[in-house]
């Protein structure tokens, strides 16, 4: 009973942060800011949901899959965000008009590709 309550609390926290991530995707102006919201909130939210599933199921094969899912999300999602941001910048996606500084464009002329 307590186990189920704690598991459901984790799942609801995860859903809440996933919701903020999606709201950020809609409201923020350009691809880089949207990636910030998407990476942080969706990583934490999905990890929360999977941790809740792990608590509900305990140490059987289902719970282990949820734990491994957390580990892989934490490892892969920042790398994916980095690659998307880099590719967007290199193929000339403009930054939002509120942007104050862009050191990457300043130095990028020196590199090939």
């Amino acid at each position: 009973m307590i186990k189920e309550t704690i598991g459901m609390i984790f799942i609801y926290i995860g859903i809440g942060f996933d919701f903020f991530g999606v709201l950020g995707l809609v409201r923020l102006p350009d691809v880089y800011n949207r990636l910030q919201a998407a990476t942080k909130c969706v990583t934490f939210g999905s990890a929360g949901i999977m941790f809740g599933v792990f608590i509900l199921n305990g140490f059987n094969s289902f719970g282990f899959k949820a734990l491994l899912g957390i580990a892989f999300i934490f490892l892969t999602s920042p790398v994916a965000a980095h690659v998307i941001a880099r590719a967007a910048h290199r193929s000339g996606v403009p930054l939002a008009k509120q942007t104050v500084v862009d050191d990457y464009a300043k130095d990028n002329d020196l590199k090939d590709l």
Binding site: F20, G21, L23, K40, C41, L95, Q98, V101, D103, A105
Partner: peptide, 22 residues
């Protein structure tokens, strides 16, 4: 970080000042 992003996203004025630094 999550509460920071949640605050920015909920704020009606969207208080951001983005940029790429080194």
């Amino acid at each position: 970080a999550n509460f920071h992003v949640a605050y920015i996203v909920i704020h009606p004025m969207l208080p951001i000042k983005p940029g790429i630094v080194k």
